[in-house]
Design a protein around this nucleic acid. Structure first.
Lengths: 213, 213
DNA sequence: CACAAGGCTTATGTATACAGAACCACTGCC
DNA sequence: GGCAGTGGTTCTGTATACATAAGCCTTGTG
């Protein structure tokens, strides 16, 4: 693995996991020494982070970690609803029914994973990730898939703000199952509606459990 | 202006204007010498181009200019319809009516610009750009605006494939005026419909005039 | 005492030198 | 004659040294 990839992954995780707070200035020498690499690959990592919107260049004074306010979350979910709604509809039109039927079946059994504790809960997150990947593949639109991928980075960051209690996860699994079912049934409008519903519930939960400092 | 910005702008224009054909390998030393800069800022420029999707890294063998096929154009317009349709609807809800009424008025007078020849035609493109900018500002959603900006780079590239005859531009001006009118009227569904109509016509024109080699 | 100007410090931006890896061509062997 | 191995060349990836510019602190003056 290249040093720039290592630096990118490390900084990205630090930002997503809120170990690097918004507003933190990432000085090049400081970070390169912390990560044990030179300035050159670090600069490339910072470029990629800035392109993704996780950092911004503060007018010649280094790059700083971008903030995510409550309005940002609203904007984020507004775009997410647009993109993922369209994606779900396209997946219902173009996707393979058997694939999503399989995912629906697994999602219906997800509550047992969620209540089992942390290691099994990791499997649940993997299952949701497989649903996302299946939709990405089914839509046959690389530009839309790319747009959703760039959004998910910010969404993971937001998700860390909310408390992922078992109750919410169980409900989310049922909502995901409904999306998979609609796609498997080849019903675009239903798939979009199920996605809209899920995202609204998800946003409500984030805002309800978000604890302002 | 920084050397990396200069290199980025030069390469970006070269790709968009099809002076650098898809599949062209951009060797670092070759391009840095051509642009009269060192490898370091050139690498940053290539990173930005790759992040935008204009180039891709070809497995350790330099970066190559990405191809745009006919299927890519379909995918591109599918996403564009989703994003710009939503943006037009949001602008109708949140935008300032006077701003878009002014733009509608100017767009109705655009045919005189188009028929006047090349220098005035540049003014027309500027007018369309102002409509895009007004929508970007009206939606109050930086993530959606960012997603549309990243799309427009590819769209300019596609547009160069089509012959922008006066007839099509006159029709496009009328379609743009309809969008502005719907936004000024505060009618989200109408604004979205007008946008959908415009994009479909635009796509049809591109595909009709596209001359495969 | 406050404001401005100047120098110093420290940051980024750039260039270049070096190392490692991959591809291509050539040669030798089967 | 074909295939595989090896050597060379050339590329990218990385490190470091240097220049330039921006900020801040200090000092002097009004």
């Amino acid at each position: 693995m290249r040093a720039s990839d290592k630096a990118y992954a490390a900084l990205r995780d630090d930002i997503i996991e809120w170990r690097l707070a918004p507003g933190t200035v990432l000085a090049e020498v400081e970070q390169s020494e912390r990560l044990g690499i030179s300035r050159t690959p670090l600069r490339e990592a910072l470029s990629r982070l800035t392109a993704e919107g996780l950092t911004t260049t503060a007018g010649g004074r280094g790059v700083v970690v971008t903030d995510i306010s409550l309005e940002d979350i609203d904007e984020l979910f507004e775009l997410r609803e647009t993109l993922e709604g369209k994606a779900a509809a396209l997946a219902a039109e173009r996707g393979d029914a058997a694939t999503f039927e399989q995912l629906r079946s697994e999602l219906c059994q997800a509550p047992s994973l969620i209540s089992a504790g942390d290691p099994a809960r990791h499997d649940y997150y993997g299952l949701v990730g497989r649903l996302d990947a299946a939709i990405d593949a089914a839509i046959h639109n690389s530009y839309l898939a790319q747009a959703m991928r760039s959004l998910r980075v910010h969404l993971v960051r937001v998700r860390r703000l909310a408390a992922d209690d078992a109750e919410r996860l169980t409900a989310a699994a049922a909502e995901h199952a409904a999306i998979a079912e609609a796609i498997a049934a080849g019903n675009p409008r239903l798939a979009e509606a199920a996605t809209t519903l899920h995202l609204h519930r998800s946003l409500s939960h984030v805002k309800a459990t978000h604890t302002p400092q």
